[in-house]
Each structure stands twice: as structure tokens, then as C-alpha cells.
């Protein structure tokens, strides 16, 4: 699987990680080797095999439609790096 530095940069954008050039280079090498290793799965024919996304053989449980939480905006923002009143504050979103 060819993995070049541009591919690493593309993935870093998706992952919202600013990587320095040295990190790009190192990750290109690391991920290349790891992908080479995990590529061994291709040896297996899994065309008739169902995927496992959960190991628990149940259906999802429910909660009843009752209001049981909320009403504490102070605690909502208590760890916020920047806030205004009870709002979280982020650099202006430009769309």
C-alpha cells in the first residue's frame, strides 16, 4: 500500500492535527510499516463472513422519555477554556 507524505497530510487535516514536517515524515514511515503489517489480513478470504461490530448479542436497550437531566449550565461550562455567560466561546466560525 503506497503511503506518501501527501496522504499523511490529507489524513492529518481530517483528524485536525497540525503536524510539523518532521512528524509528517516520521508518521509516513510508521504508518507505512504498520499498514504493511496489517495488510496480512488480505490473505484471508472473508467474502462469506459477517462482520462483527459488537460482541454482545443483544438489541439496544431504551430509556423512557422523561426529562431527568439538565438545568445546570454552570457545571456545563465549568471546564471551558473560554466562555461568555453560559456559552462556550470559540474563534469566530466563518462559513
Amino acid at each position: 500500500m503506497p503511503l506518501d507524505e501527501n496522504e499523511i497530510r490529507r489524513v492529518a487535516v481530517l483528524a485536525r492535527l497540525h503536524l510539523g514536517e518532521d512528524e509528517v515524515a516520521r508518521l509516513t514511515g510508521d504508518l507505512g510499516r504498520i499498514l504493511g503489517f496489517v495488510g496480512k489480513l488480505a490473505e484471508l478470504d472473508t467474502s462469506d463472513i459477517e462482520p462483527t461490530s459488537h460482541v454482545v448479542a443483544m438489541s439496544t436497550p431504551y430509556r423512557e422519555d422523561e426529562v431527568t437531566t439538565g438545568g445546570d449550565p454552570d457545571s456545563a461550562i465549568t471546564n471551558a477554556p473560554r466562555r461568555d455567560g453560559h456559552y462556550f466561546v470559540v474563534p469566530r466560525i466563518i462559513e
Partner: peptide, 22 residues
């Protein structure tokens, strides 16, 4: 619904900022 899809917070419209959060 009275509450949110995956938690027990009110789904009602109109409240102070982050009033309906957990």
C-alpha cells in the same frame, strides 16, 4: 419528544444557553 434522543435532557425549544445539557 420530551427528552433528547440519547440523554435525559429536555428537548424543548427556548431556554438559557446550555440550560438543557448534561
Amino acid at each position: 419528544t420530551a427528552s433528547k434522543l440519547f440523554c435525559g435532557c429536555s428537548a424543548a425549544f427556548g431556554a438559557g444557553a446550555n440550560e438543557h445539557t448534561c
